[in-house]
Simulated scan of single mutants.
Amino acid sequence: MNHTNSQEEANRKAKPVAPKVKELIDRTKSVILATVDAEGVPNSSYAPFVQVNNTLYILVSFMAKHTKNLADGRKTSVMFIEDESATKQIYARERLTVEAAASQVERDSEIWNTVVTRLKETHGKVVDVIAEMQDFILIALQPVKGSYVNGFGSAYFVDENLEILEHRNDVNHQSK
């Protein structure tokens, strides 16, 4: 194998720079949520979020199905995904999908106040209004594990800290 081929192989196997995951999160204002109810019926939705340390926080209303599912501590998955209008290839949109443990944050606790302040800074004065509504609760989404994809053949496992662990697909796609 010549130097050019070995360099191409090394580039293909190289992990993406860890800040790429952070950059995707930083340029996203809301997360896509996947939850299930007590009967196992799936529900997809979205919610504006902020990240404090390694935890994602969403302020959501009990009028939404996903809120009860999250408040009951059921399994959830969150997704950050590149805007369709910005992608060069719709089949290879950059995305981060994370399994997360959901827990409710006590109203008016120190973390509640910190996160609501961050939500206001990020999403505006509407947070002042909804944070006062009693049907809105603050949910902490603690990442467990997930995957990051940033193109064809470029899929990686991520850990609870949203750090790249390893290349996810060592087997190439098969053609007919």
Rank of each mutant, 00 (worst) to 15 (best):
I137G: 12
Y148F: 09
V52E: 13
E8C: 13
F62Q: 04
S175K: 15
A34T: 02
D26S: 12
V126Y: 03
A18F: 07
R168V: 05
A38Y: 01
G124I: 02
E166S: 07
S154C: 11
I81W: 01
K15T: 05
R168P: 08
L165M: 07
E8Y: 15
K29F: 12
E121L: 10
N11F: 13
N54M: 08
N161G: 12
N150K: 03
A140H: 04
T87F: 03
K65G: 12
L138M: 05
V50S: 10
V36W: 06
E110F: 11
L24G: 06
G124R: 03
V126L: 14
V127A: 01
A47Y: 03
A102Q: 01
M63G: 14
V98F: 09
Q142F: 03
A18I: 07
D128V: 01
A86I: 04
H123T: 01
M1E: 11
P19L: 00
V144F: 02
S103F: 08
F80W: 01
A71N: 07
V158D: 05
I130N: 00
A64Q: 07
I139V: 10
L24V: 11
M1L: 11
L138C: 03
N43D: 11
T28M: 02
Q7Y: 10
K13S: 14
S175I: 14
D26I: 07
N113S: 11
T114F: 11
E94K: 09
M133K: 14
T114G: 02
G40T: 04
R118F: 06
L70E: 06
Q89S: 13
G40H: 09
T4H: 13
D26V: 00
I58Q: 00
E23D: 14
P19K: 02
N161I: 02
L119V: 08
N172D: 15
T28C: 04
V171C: 10
K15S: 15
A92W: 08
H66T: 08
V115K: 03
G153M: 08
D83S: 03
I139D: 01
Q104K: 13
P19N: 06
S147R: 13
I90D: 06
S147N: 10
E132G: 15
I139K: 00
A14G: 07
V129C: 04
